[in-house]
Amino acid sequence: MSDDRLRRSYDMLLAIRADTGNDRGGCPPVERIASLIRREEDEDSRLALLDHVMACPFCQPEFELLRVAERASGEQARTTDP
């Protein structure tokens, strides 16, 4: 099975999870998702957290929004501040 085909199946899997329930009892707080982007926890914790975030149709967009804020403003700070 090609990588593209696997990606499509995975995307559909997440779409179905999103449609079949929005119980977020097992989701980490947004502060922990932010710590993932800043690499603040040890590797095992980060892997466990990523494992959830990448399989959760609700945490994934939150992770992306935090990452976008971090990247967009961080790049500017690195290039313009002394």
Binding site: N22, V30, A34, E64, Q76, A77, D81
Partner: peptide, 30 residues
């Protein structure tokens, strides 16, 4: 300074998400 804007942007993103969770909004899928 850009670093101030950076800190503001990161904490703003956190607050946007906290508010959405408090309102139990379901995030839009990517």
């Amino acid at each position: 300074p850009a670093s101030y804007v950076h800190r503001t942007a990161v904490s703003a993103a956190l607050d946007v998400l906290r508010r959405r969770r408090a309102r139990r909004e379901t995030p839009a899928r990517l």
